[in-house]
Design a protein around this nucleic acid. Structure first.
Lengths: 118, 118
DNA sequence: AAATAGATATTGTGCATCCAATATCGTATG
DNA sequence: CATACGATATTGGATGCACAATATCTATTT
C-alpha cells in the first residue's frame, strides 16, 4: 500500500491488488462490469478505466474500452454527456433492468466460487 | 422444476435456471469454470458440459469444450484417462495451485457483485 | 454382423475482448 | 499563441469463446 500525490490532485492511496493468474484466461464480462460500476454513480471513461484497474490490476486498453462504451450507448443501456473535457456515462432505466437480470445469471453461474473462497 | 426419466437412466430432477441476459455478453471464463468444477471431482467431457448447462442454461458446444480441455491438459493443469467410452479429466497439483490464484483474482474483480445480489 | 446410442473430437466462421501504437480534442499554464 | 496534459477515440492484429455441422470412437443392443 502506498500514497501517490500528483501535483494539483488529491493524494490517493494505492492498494496492491492481486495480479491476473497464469493458469487461465480471465477475459470477458467487460460490458457487464461497466454496467455494474455505473449503477453506483455516473463516471467518465478514464474514471471507469481506473476503477477496473483496481479490480483486475490492469487498465483496459482504450481500444477495448471506448468501443464497448459506444456499443452500450447504442443499445440504450447507458447515455453520455460532455462536461468540459470529460464525457460522463450514466446508466439508463433499460440498463438498470438489464443489469438486474445479468447479475442474477452471473450469481447462478459463478456465485459458489465467491462463497467457496471466503 | 421437472423430473426427467430416460429409459435405463436414473431419473433426474431438472431445475430451471435463469437464461443468459440480453443486455450484455456473458462469454468468457470457460477454462476457469472447468478448473473450478474439477476441484470437486473428476468428470468426463459430457458430464462437464451438463454441469456448465446447470449454471449457464446452455451446454458449451463441443467445438468449444474439447479444444479447451485439450489446452488445459497441455498446460499440465488437468490430466485425462479413458474408462471405457468416457474420458475422465482430473485436476493436477499444478491445476490446484492455479485455481487458488485464479479464484482470488476473480473475487477481487467480481466479488462485490455476488454479495450485492444476496 | 449391423444398428443404435453415447461420448469424443474436428472444421470453419463470427464476435467480444484484449493489446500496442497513434491521433485528436478540450482545458489550463507559461 | 504555444506548450503540455488529461481525456477521448481509432486502427490493426491476436486470442478465447461461441456456434452449426460433421466425423469418429466405444459399447451395447438387436
Amino acid at each position: 500500500m502506498s500514497i501517490v500525490a500528483k501535483k494539483g490532485k488529491v493524494p490517493r492511496i494505492e492498494i496492491e491488488c492481486c495480479q491476473p493468474p497464469a493458469c487461465c484466461d480471465m477475459r470477458g464480462l467487460l460490458s457487464f462490469l461497466i454496467l455494474h460500476l455505473l449503477t453506483k454513480k455516473k463516471m467518465y471513461g478514464a474514471e471507469i478505466a481506473d476503477e477496473i484497474a483496481l479490480r483486475k490490476a490492469e487498465k483496459p486498453n482504450p481500444g477495448t474500452l471506448y468501443p464497448t462504451l459506444k456499443q452500450l450507448e447504442k443499445k440504450g443501456l447507458i447515455e453520455s454527456s460532455r462536461e468540459g473535457n470529460a464525457k460522463y456515462y450514466k446508466i439508463t432505466p433499460a440498463g438498470k433492468e438489464g443489469i438486474l437480470q445479468a447479475r442474477e445469471f452471473f450469481v447462478q453461474a459463478y456465485g459458489d466460487i465467491v462463497l467457496d473462497s471466503m
